[in-house]
Design a protein around this nucleic acid. Structure first.
Lengths: 137, 137
DNA sequence: TTCTTATGATTACAGTTGTAATCTTACCAA
DNA sequence: TTGGTAAGATTACAACTGTAATCATAAGAA
């Protein structure tokens, strides 16, 4: 329900890698996962991660199961669904629900590779084949 | 620099509609702009909007110019650039910088219209013509 | 000129977020 | 058995947010 914050999302990412997982598993993954900023790798304090796990539990984004003294956590959200919903939100907010302005803006801001274009073409081909298209209005 | 919050963004949207604009202009626009939730139209309190304008000024997202007793505000960010950057951020965060998974997820979550597909095709055609494509790696 | 009022500035205040430290307590080592 | 420790629970705390109310002041009404 409630929104997932940025740091909470990073913790969720670590959990999605493989689950169920213990807090320590997650801390390890976070501290060894490739950094965006390679010079100053972010080091996650264990207390911080535990706090974020608690918050994710409270937000019902993950669940846990008691295992001896510690917990094993499991995501309650699927990554694909979560990211797709957030994508739709952004597209609604910025582009009135239209996908192509997003793609156009992205292309202008970032570099498109030939591969990206081929993937897009493949997607379109799929849609056209499967007839997943709502009729024009 | 600092991030623009959700409500701040809505205020910015109203300003982007036309500027320079006074606080009152903006309040009016906000209170008559089409509501997502039509039943319970959000009513913006003037005090709230003024606060948000101040915060946007402090964040250097907008500027103002004294006009008699009141101010005229002007955006310092272009909408297109702002939204494109935010789009890139989301795509980096969720899809490792690849556009096609975003499009695929969006299509699964939302309805694609024939028009959307035609626009995408047109975009692709443009890129291919203009050779704006970075070579595959 | 004086009073009212509208405008921006300042202050408020609870909820969220990032980032931990401290508290409690149940196991494992000795 | 007992004491240290590690795991989660609770508490901390400032910055940011959403949502305004109050303060100070200048400009227009009377």
């Amino acid at each position: 329900m409630s929104d997932i914050s940025n740091t909470e999302f990073e913790v969720l990412e670590a959990l999605w890698q493989q689950y169920p997982a213990s807090a320590n598993d997650i801390i390890e993954r976070l501290n060894q996962s490739p950094q965006a900023d390679k010079d100053q790798p972010k080091s996650w304090h264990q207390k911080t991660v535990k706090t974020l796990l608690s918050r994710l539990v409270k937000k019902k984004a993950i669940s846990f199961e008691k295992q001896q003294r510690h917990y094993l956590y499991t995501p309650l959200l699927e990554r694909e669904i979560y990211t797709a919903k957030e994508s739709v939100s952004l597209i609604d907010k910025f582009f009135n629900g239209r996908i192509s302005p997003l793609v156009a803006g992205f292309a202008k801001q970032s570099d498109l590779k030939k591969e990206d274009i081929n993937e897009l073409k493949a997607l379109i081909a799929t849609w056209e084949q499967e007839g997943e298209i709502t009729d024009d209005d």
